[in-house]
């Protein structure tokens, strides 16, 4: 057992010495990372969009969950990891991409083990989406591909923007009465789609809870909720509260799946489109009532 281990170490050492020589001989200037591991839902998606075939070695387990990942089907093409330092290290990556919400202990451990870790901050606006793609492009040495996709994203976004005169007042309402304000990605998407966010009236700039009675008295035109997750939770019960039901029946309701705006990727355009459709419905109803 020990002998086998020793032999592996020796062989590994020898190959380790030879390998750089071979590499330098063949393609000297290319320092493009060849074994990239992503351990965060959002970096998973950016990396899957930008990496060369074979360049990305593994994505996190969340990337395959259809509720939270916009690329759940694509993710089936990559092996998954659970963002644990041990398994990441054994994948022998030459670059790890992580999110700011990844476990700090894991990131520290990986750095201590000598692995380069790029940490991506969560996107708080649509501009951040372009910035994140550019940065992932730079990290993977896929700058040209990233620039292409950024241009495509920005063109599609520009085409979606409309002049809106009467902006309906919308409330984003999640489990536990959680809501997001203007200074968040969802808030930016809501504003781009032509809504005013009721969170501002409730005094919530980034994110926070709107008590049910405050929501009711603010009387939003539209209530936007997330999709339900499997199995039950007390947190989601608030969406069945008679008051929320009453508001939804009396007003327009919409659902934007978490996967469409949880991460700052070009997939947020789906959320923008969905919300613009919702606003058109609202305008049609309002026009019908006015006539």
């Amino acid at each position: 057992m020990i002998r086998a281990h020793l032999r592996n170490m020796v062989l590994g050492g020898v190959i380790g010495l030879i390998a750089p020589l071979v590499a330098t001989a063949q393609d000297a200037p290319d320092v493009r990372p060849k074994r990239v591991v992503s351990i965060n839902l959002c970096t998973d998606q950016l990396a899957m969009m930008l990496a060369d075939p074979g360049q990305l070695v593994s994505v996190s387990v969340l990337a395959r969950e259809p509720e939270s990942s916009a690329m759940a089907d694509e993710a089936l093409g990559w092996p998954i990891n659970h963002a644990r330092a041990e398994e990441i290290f054994l994948l022998k990556p030459d670059l790890v991409v992580a999110g700011a919400f990844s476990s700090q202990a894991t990131v520290q451990m990986l750095r201590k083990l000598g692995l380069p870790v790029e940490v991506f901050e969560p996107a708080l606006s649509l501009e951040d989406v372009s910035a994140a793609m550019t940065r992932m492009g730079a990290a993977l040495h896929q700058d040209a591909r990233a620039a292409d996709q950024v241009a495509g994203f920005e063109a599609r976004l520009a085409a979606l923007r409309e002049q809106v005169v009467n902006r309906p007042r919308a409330a984003i309402y999640y489990a536990n009465g959680y809501s997001v304000g203007d200074q968040s990605l969802s808030g930016h998407i809501l504003a781009t789609a032509g809504f005013d966010n009721i969170a501002r009236e409730a005094g919530i700039p980034v994110a926070g809870n709107i008590p049910l009675e405050v929501l009711a008295l603010l009387d939003p035109d539209v209530i936007i909720t997330g999709q339900r997750y499997p199995a039950a939770s007390r947190s989601e019960e608030i969406l069945d509260h008679p008051v929320v039901r009453h508001l939804q029946d009396a007003r327009l309701r919409g659902t934007i799946a978490d996967r469409d705006w949880i991460c700052g990727t070009p997939h947020v355009l789906r959320a923008v489109e969905g919300l613009i459709g919702l606003r058109h419905d609202y305008e049609a109803v309002a026009r019908g009532a006015g006539e």
Partner: peptide, 25 residues
């Protein structure tokens, strides 16, 4: 063990109790 992402956070509720958002139901 619940597949629901909110369930684990509810441990606090079950240990400490709250009347938030209850209804006539």
């Amino acid at each position: 063990l619940s597949p629901n992402p909110f369930a684990a956070n509810e441990i606090v509720f079950w240990m400490m109790g709250s009347l938030a958002d209850r209804s006539m139901v």
